[in-house]
């Protein structure tokens, strides 16, 4: 099942799929947000934005608009 990052439940993990590199800053890639890596949604700020992630052991926050551009695949055992 492929969804965007913002659709993850809090605490849920997914594997990052290919994304449109025009919508995602290089800095995010450099912090480990790369296709194939695991990402976990840790927390969401009030009003649903920004999002707090653990990706590739990096803890970082990004805005909703960036999260919408990143698609993730949920491994079977993580499905709710």
């Amino acid at each position: 099942m492929e969804i965007n990052l913002a659709q993850l439940q809090i605490g849920q993990k997914g594997i990052i799929q290919d994304f449109d590199i025009d919508l995602v800053p290089l800095k995010l890639l450099e912090m480990g947000c790369l296709p194939g890596n695991e990402v976990q949604l840790l927390q969401v700020a009030p009003f649903g934005d920004p999002l707090y992630l653990n990706v590739n052991d990096s803890h970082l926050a990004i805005r909703l608009e960036t999260a919408l551009a990143i698609m993730v695949e949920i491994p079977n055992e993580e499905k709710l």
Partner: peptide
């Protein structure tokens, strides 16, 4: 300007 916002959450 494109809104690039990446904040590291340190320990």
């Amino acid at each position: 300007s494109k809104s690039y916002f990446v904040v590291e959450m340190p320990n």
